[in-house]
């Protein structure tokens, strides 16, 4: 037995009785789960079950109807917790008129950079070598997704909230997401992932959260 808890075992996300209702119609919950550093949670649920909503609440973009969530002990939306969690949604948050490098530089200016991660290396890592200075509007859907994934790698967030990260990606792209997740988890990060494709991913997840 480990004599003292490693940082990987520390609980990063704590969800207690979390529920959400839209116009008084319950959407999901109450939910209870924990996610520790080094864990990947897979959020399962049908269309309209509130997967995206859950991620937006945990990111601090929406307010839960009841219950609480704690990211590293702080409420989502607490300024002290800002930058701790990183959301990758359907809208990728890339400016179409800027290049990949310029987009990443803006993100790094706002959120800082992960130790030992450079913008150029990150672009190479996601396979966008040679596209660093091409305006994002000229990239394919898959390449745009890769550019957004580069932001995950670059920013120092410990909790990733990934909404359908496999959408629009080819086989190599799916492998890339899994590789990024492995690196993130190895560095004691945690991730919550929604997906309805990429069945092979199920083995990857260490924890499953069902929405109904």
């Amino acid at each position: 037995m480990n004599p003292r808890p490693s940082p990987a075992a520390a609980t990063l996300l704590e969800v207690r009785e979390l529920a959400f209702a839209r116009r008084d119609e319950p959407v999901f919950g109450p939910l209870n789960f924990d996610l520790a550093g080094g864990e990947i949670g897979l959020i399962e649920g049908d269309n309209g079950s509130g997967k995206t909503t859950l991620l937006r609440i945990l990111a601090g973009l929406l307010r839960a109807s009841s219950g609480s969530a704690r990211v590293d002990g702080l409420a989502p939306g607490d300024p002290a917790a800002a930058g701790m969690a990183l959301l990758l949604g359907h809208q990728l948050g890339l400016k179409a008129d800027l290049g990949v490098r310029e987009n990443l530089a803006v993100a790094a200016g706002l959120y800082g950079q992960r130790e030992g991660c450079g913008i150029t290396d990150t672009i190479t890592e996601v396979g966008l070598d040679g596209y660093a200075d091409v305006p994002v509007r000229q990239l394919s859907a898959g390449q745009k997704k890769r550019a957004a994934l580069a932001r995950l790698r670059l920013l120092p967030a410990r909790l990733w909230l990934l909404d359908e990260p496999f959408a629009n990606l080819d086989r190599a792209g799916i492998a890339l997401v899994n590789r990024l997740l492995d690196v993130h988890v190895a560095g004691h990060g945690a991730a919550l992932v929604t997906t309805h494709g990429a069945v092979s991913f199920r083995d990857h997840a260490t924890r499953r959260i069902a929405l109904s």
Binding site: A85, L87, H90, L92, K95, A96, A107, L110, Y111, G112
Partner: peptide, 19 residues
């Protein structure tokens, strides 16, 4: 707002007013 970059400003560690 349409391309999602407004969310990045909302979630950034800096005071939103400053950004």
């Amino acid at each position: 707002w349409e391309d999602g970059s407004l969310e990045q400003l909302l979630l950034a560690p800096q005071p939103l007013g400053l950004l």
